[in-house]
């Protein structure tokens, strides 16, 4: 059984986010959680409301950037944070759902706003049976 999870990795001015799991979709879901964790602890975000997302791209890497940028857009325009993600992939087309809630400054204590996902340190690949999806996000 390959565990799913996420982590941050250092970048000089911004933050690297990395998701991993048994499938490409799981790695994408975890990368989105790592994105939330740039702003606040995902455990503080109650999955009250759901938002549907779709995107597509020419390759896995560009698709990860598209997916993360869709979430950045929803975070910015709905003033929401997301703590539960569901991704279904068909080639380089993605259908996803994100559960979360409106930002509550007192409870979430959001640290920083994400401007966008970048192509820096971008990788989507399999390593020893485990899928990894990562890039640097500009904050």
């Amino acid at each position: 059984m390959i565990a799913s999870g996420w982590e941050h990795f250092p970048h000089a001015a911004d933050i690297g986010i990395r998701g991993f799991g048994p499938t490409r979709a799981a790695a994408f879901e975890q990368a989105a959680l790592a994105l939330t964790a740039v702003v606040t602890e995902p455990g503080r975000v109650v999955p009250r409301e759901v938002v549907a997302l779709i995107c597509e791209a020419d390759d896995d890497g560009a698709l990860l950037v598209e997916w993360l940028n869709e979430i950045v857009y929803e975070m910015a325009t709905r003033r929401m944070l997301f703590s539960r993600l569901e991704v279904a992939l068909a080639g380089h087309a993605l259908k996803g759902r994100a559960w979360g809630e409106t930002i509550d400054a007192a409870r979430h204590r959001p640290a920083v706003e994400v401007k966008g996902a970048t192509y820096t340190a971008l990788a989507v690949h399999q390593e020893g049976g485990r899928w990894i999806a990562q890039c640097v996000v500009d904050v």
Partner: peptide, 17 residues
Amino acid sequence: RGLGHQIGTEFLRDMAK
């Protein structure tokens, strides 16, 4: 603010393509 971030994001993608 968000307007510049979104323009940067979209044109980075379009110009890379």
